[in-house]
């Protein structure tokens, strides 16, 4: 035990109480609330710091598909265009998939909001061209996700 200098005083036990923090309490659930609040705050300030994904396999697959679809769409869009945007060429499929994987974009919500294309379904692999076409035609809507 360290030499604290209060051993022979009339308030050594009270000093010990202060030291141990047993006099203080925090509101129930405080640390959980703090975590939520803090990570929301830091996410706003630092786009790198994002909430952990709680992805199920369906969402992971969707993320993968959209990532691939977006990158293919980019290639289709820019091939043959006289001055392709250099930015588009600097992103690989892996970059885009990684970005989508670690972003807080709710992919299911986005796809479900696109009511004029068929709802995403794992069985729809044969219809993936629909997504390619849609993304190519509406690239501007996906810029925030892709870049």
């Amino acid at each position: 035990m360290q030499e604290d200098g209060f051993a022979n005083t009339g308030f050594s036990s009270e000093m010990e109480d202060l030291k141990n923090g047993r006099l203080f309490h925090q509101p129930e659930g405080y640390f959980d609330e703090l975590e939520a609040k803090l990570f929301a705050k830091t996410t706003d300030q630092n786009p790198i710091l994002l909430k952990p994904e709680k992805t199920d396999s369906r969402q992971r697959l969707l993320t993968l598909w959209l990532g691939v679809a977006a990158s293919v769409a980019l290639l289709i869009y820019f091939v043959g265009v006289p001055s392709p945007t250099p930015k588009a060429e600097s992103y690989t499929n892996t970059d885009i998939i990684d970005y989508l994987e670690y972003s807080d974009v709710d992919m299911i919500e986005i796809v479900e909001s696109l009511d004029h294309i068929p709802e995403f379904d794992e069985e729809m692999s044969d219809k993936i061209e629909v997504y390619y076409e849609y993304i190519a035609e509406n690239l501007v809507d996906f810029e925030d996700i892709i870049y």
């Binding site: 308030f11 009270e14 000093m15 109480d17 202060l18 006099l23 203080f24 309490h25 925090q26 509101p27």
Partner: peptide, 13 residues
């Protein structure tokens, strides 16, 4: 409400 000390504790603070 989150402090359970007495007057001696408060004086030490």
């Amino acid at each position: 409400p989150y402090f359970e000390g007495n007057e001696i504790h408060a004086t030490l603070v």
